[in-house]
Design a protein around this nucleic acid. Sequence first.
RNA 1: GGAGAGAUGGCAGAGUGGUCGAAUGCACCGGUCUUGAAAACCGGCAAGGAUGCAAGUCCUUCCAGGGUUCGAAUCCCUGUCUCUCCGCCA
Length: 426
Amino acid sequence: MHDIKFIKKNPSTFDLSLKKRNLKPCSEIIIKIHNKYLDYLNEKQNYLEKKNSLSKLFSQQTEDLDKIKEQVHNLKIKIDELNKLSEEKLNEFNKIMLEIPNLISEKVPDGNSQEDNNIIKEVGKKKKYNFQPKNHLDLAENLNLLDYGQAIKISGSRFSIIKSDLAKLHRGLVNFLLDHNSIKFDYKECIVPELVNYKSLEGTGQLPKFEDDLFKTNFNDLYLIPTSEVPLTNLNRDSIINKKDLPIKYTTYTNCFRAEAGASGKDTKGLMREHQFGKVELVIISEPNESENELSKMTTCVEKILQDLSLPYRMVELCSGDIGFSSSYTVDFEIWMPGQNTFREVSSCSNCKDFQSRRMKMRVKNFDSGEIYFPHTLNGSSLAVGRLLIAILENYQNEDGTIEIPSVLHKYTNGLNIISNDDQKI
RNA sequence: GGAGAGAUGGCAGAGUGGUCGAAUGCACCGGUCUUGAAAACCGGCAAGGAUGCAAGUCCUUCCAGGGUUCGAAUCCCUGUCUCUCCGCCA
């Protein structure tokens, strides 16, 4: 949510940012609606003041009370009218405002699509194979570790059943990632609900605009989370944080659920794009002037994982056409996938500035000065576990189809260091 | 699923029609005292909005939404959530 006062002061800056996202300028109409709202509001407040002062006369005098009653009655009619009008305008205003994406940072490169993203750096050497590397799907199915027939029977497409040593690797990865984040990088580990209410999704920006991407349940109208950014960031919704408690850093592992409404035909099989996937998430609530710094600490945390796992990756700055709704600046991490001969996204780290904190009324108070302001919120994946699994399968494959397990994970896989065929056919 | 109770400031907790944005305690901030600290004492301390250069003035908010009334934290209705007991259950 944007600050209307900012828009009124800087309409052209605001419109320019929208233009970079290929959106139409709208400052003029927003300002117009808001001013109209203020007109109604001020008029209403004047009448309210009159009404209040008339009511107070009752405890002071006893004469002409009927006359006052009548005056109040007349005022109430006007107030009701103006109340309706101002509410209408405010609703109109909010409806527009909630669908406007965040302003993008000056650092964000111009561009229309993924193609225009800026590669910041490429790290790690791509392994050379003296055979044709397979993709994760062939590898895992050959090893009997992934079953799509069963997944389709139980739930349909875009689900999978992970089995045996691959399931153990998945579990080990989750523990490795959570330990990394909480012990080495001081994020507070949490377990959070995977069903959330409307307000929470509005707070982080998924609603009202992206309803189609979400799964809604018939229990209290709760939604399945598309990312644990939603519950983690909303932990401090509608509240005032003591400045001394910043920065607040959370990490969690959850399943994430996405309808993938606009992705038909893309990555239809395999762990790449599923309706349900596991993800470890990082969220930071930071002082406004510290958020850039915090983002770089966050990306360092993610990078360290990729380095520990010796996976070749690149760091990509998203362009104005590709950046998410709530973000002002986003850095993606992509791992080299030899079986697909391309880099694929495994993490996205965003600085949302005060966009989400304004939406969810998360504020910070400096108790020394009394000052109250909106903090910046950041979120990042560390990492999407399914995709990380793909990366390990493809990067650590041997010619015979077996998979080495990276050495940092051995203590998380109870010493298991190679995945070979699971003989059990069930 | 059945029965009952409740939702008030950062927290605890008074308040049952006007003088209530709301007692009191704790926490927090400032001060006195002290070599320093603690204790004690004194003072301050909700949020959002409008307007104004500012000081200030005004409006709104006691879970949410309706209603009664000149006037609602307080009375009535609806909804949501929480708690307790019983049943069921990982």
